[in-house]
Design a protein around this nucleic acid. Sequence first.
DNA 1: ACCCCTGTTCGTTATGGTCGAACGGCCCGG
DNA 2: CCGGGCCGTTCGACCATAACGAACAGGGGT
Lengths: 256, 256
Amino acid sequence: MIQSVRRASAILRELGSGHRLGVTELAERLGLAKATVYGLVRSLEADALVERDLETGKYRLGPALLQLGNAFLDGHELRARSLLWADSLAGRTSEAVRVGVPSGLNVLIVHHVFRPDNSVQILEVGAAIPWHASALGKAIAASRDDETLGMLLDGPLAKLTGRTLVDPRLLRRALVAIRRTGIAVEDQEAVIGEAEISAAIFDHDGHPVGAIGVAGPVERLLPQGSASGDVVGAVKEAARGLTRDLGGVRRFAGHR
Amino acid sequence: MIQSVRRASAILRELGSGHRLGVTELAERLGLAKATVYGLVRSLEADALVERDLETGKYRLGPALLQLGNAFLDGHELRARSLLWADSLAGRTSEAVRVGVPSGLNVLIVHHVFRPDNSVQILEVGAAIPWHASALGKAIAASRDDETLGMLLDGPLAKLTGRTLVDPRLLRRALVAIRRTGIAVEDQEAVIGEAEISAAIFDHDGHPVGAIGVAGPVERLLPQGSASGDVVGAVKEAARGLTRDLGGVRRFAGHR
DNA sequence: ACCCCTGTTCGTTATGGTCGAACGGCCCGG
DNA sequence: CCGGGCCGTTCGACCATAACGAACAGGGGT
């Protein structure tokens, strides 16, 4: 495990949380000597992974990251195969569709089809959502191996709204139900007024590689409090179809 | 300049050009020992900057890069300020608008407004275009300092279409004209049938930080072979407005 | 005009990154 | 079914080199 590389990536993560930081500030956040951080940022800057703000001298993320992020999407097999399914799902449900993959403690949106109603919507591709506050994240987590799941439940569980589940015990119980039904529901756990219904997608040895789901206003997606059978059926069908396209197989309650 | 960080970033660049590569293949491409590369990829993998393909064992770019790329966009001042100008420009010209920043030998698209005609268009944000084959790139290059410009002209100049300018002498002459007029035109130099008209955006000491331009079918954008005054005016106005918003100033023919 | 805090450079030390070689597992072909 | 070759992986030793503290320089703010 190469120390300097890990540290460089820690710098990127630090810079990724919005703020622009100077060498000194970075050094104290990471607990490193200024000169050490300086060497790291200079190296990152040489490859345009970070950029310097000319007026303040502080550092921010560099353009090469956008390029690499785009290259990641281009080569992403699940994303490529989900394009058609997502379009069809959005058409059938008249709601927005999102496809996500696990990335640490978050779900990363790799594909997003707008609700087909000509309203202005912001593209969420690239957004990272805490796993426990999204249907995509819960659908994926429900089928992960016990070790990974433990790590997820031990991590920080931020309370994004009043309805976010943050108790590991409650969360674990919810995941059991999700694994049984194959459907995860999120009811205003990330954003008030918004809900999502999703199902996991599996690879050939039954590990969840991502999830696809339908997102929209809670009153349309969860009329009288629960999901409509039509939407649930459509989501399940899309997830199953995608799993099949990937050469995958749904694994039931298997561990390891 | 920290060796291992530069090497790690070289691995990312290698992986970014589409192909999935194994340790051995990476090692020979970079001229390093297998064990060295192995250590580097393991470290990158730990931070999700690269990912392993479970079936083939080969490596590809990781999800963290998409997240970081998105964070780069979020914090991007030029992008943020260009949103309104780009919308307005697209409305006035009824064509697609793109905003780009320099990234090495490429222009990176950081904002893209679709042509307002309800046709299906693919989002180009994150795409990297060789600077010499785009109006954005030429507009930026025309105002860069001599040293950077020399580097650009010395770099590889790929011939993307029959009309791409690849002769450094011709290119340099074109840039002189662009600097004089403040407008760069690209006529099917990247994609046959597509043209673009753009102008550079400057920071407070007159360095070009990016460019904004209108892109569309050549027959509409360049009727009877040259740009319409209306479009040129609108582009110039948007670029000037953006420059002003950034607290910048257009610099004429100044060096250093 | 001062001071303080910044980014930067320098030289030394010993950490830890690099490498070659050897291991073990997998796939392919015989 | 067995062998060969290629792959990712581990190991250990060498010494390059990353990390550090301290000293320098430049700018902004007071």
